[in-house]
Design a protein around this nucleic acid. Sequence first.
DNA 1: CATGATCGGTTGCAAATGAAACTATCGCCG
DNA 2: CGGCGATAGTTTCATTTGCAACCGATCATG
Lengths: 157, 157
Amino acid sequence: MPVARRFRPASQLVLERFVPYRLSVLTNRISGALAAHYRRRFGLSIPEWRVMATLARFPGLSAAAVAERTAMDKVTVSRAIAGLKRAGRLGRATDGRDRRRAVLTLSPAGCSVYSRIAPFALERECRLLASLTPAERRALDRLLTKLDRAAASLAEF
Amino acid sequence: MPVARRFRPASQLVLERFVPYRLSVLTNRISGALAAHYRRRFGLSIPEWRVMATLARFPGLSAAAVAERTAMDKVTVSRAIAGLKRAGRLGRATDGRDRRRAVLTLSPAGCSVYSRIAPFALERECRLLASLTPAERRALDRLLTKLDRAAASLAEF
DNA sequence: CATGATCGGTTGCAAATGAAACTATCGCCG
DNA sequence: CGGCGATAGTTTCATTTGCAACCGATCATG
C-alpha cells in the first residue's frame, strides 16, 4: 500500500520547468497579444480595458471597488479612470451618501467601444482554449481557482 | 450519440472568468511575492534572477541566447547583465570566434548567491503546488505546455 | 576583397509603474 | 459639537520598461 508522502521541492532549479516562470512567460505572451490589439484599434491600455470590462458588468462601482475586484493598484485604476474620462468613455458622479466616493459608469460611447472589443477578446480566449480538450478546459478552470487561493496565502508573508 | 462540436466563445464577457485575466492576476501575485524576496534579501530584480538561473544551468551563453531562452527582451537582458556585472556576480569574456558575442558565466560570488536563492524559489514553488493533487500537478504541467504553444501562434498576428 | 545586409549588444527617450505624500471626506468617541 | 484616525482618490517623484535608433563586428554575395 502506497504511503502518503508530502510533496517535495525539486532538487534542482531548471528555469524552463519552474512554474512561476512558465506562468509569467505564458501570461506575457497572451496579454501582450491582446494589449496590442486594444491599443491599435481603440487606443486603450490594459488597465483601461479592465476598468471598462468591470464597469460594464458592475455599473456604479467606486474606484476602490474596481481596484479590489481587478487586483490592480489603486493608482493604476485612478489613472485608467482619468484616461477613460478624458476620452469621454465613462461618467463619474459623486455618491450622495459618501462624497469621497465616485460612482462610475460607462458612457454611451464607452458602451459602444466595449461592445466592439468584448467579442474580440472572447474570440481570442476561445481560440486559445480551442487547443484544449473539454476535460482540459475544466481542469484549467479548477487549477486557476486553486492556485489563486494558494498564491493569496503565499503572498501574505 | 453526441455530435462533436467546435468550442465557442462565451456569449458574454465576465472578467473574473476570462482566462487571460485570471492568468494575469495569478502571475502577478506569484511573481510579486517572489520578487519582493529576491530584492529584500539579495538586491536582485526578476530579470537579474532569471539571467542568473539561466547561466547557472547553461554557463557560457551569450546575451542573445539568454534572451531567447527566457523569452525576455534583449534590452532587459542587457541591463540585467550590466547590473550583475556591476555587483561582481558574473564574468563576461569575448568569444574568440565571433567578437560581437559575449561569453557569460556566473562568478564565484554569483554562484554563491544563486545557491542560496534557488532553494528558496523551489520551496515557494513547492508550497504553491502542494495545494494540488498529484494528478492536478501533472495536468498543470500539460496545460502550461499546450497553452504556451497555442499562445505562440496566437501572438503571430 | 569590397559593400550592403545582418547580428550582438548598448544607449536615448518617452511612457508605464508604484511607493509615499497629500487632499478631502467620513465615522467615531469624548 | 470638536477633533482624530481611517478611507477615497489624486499627485508627485523616482524607478522600470520597451521601442527605436545606434555602433561595431560579421557574413554573404558578387
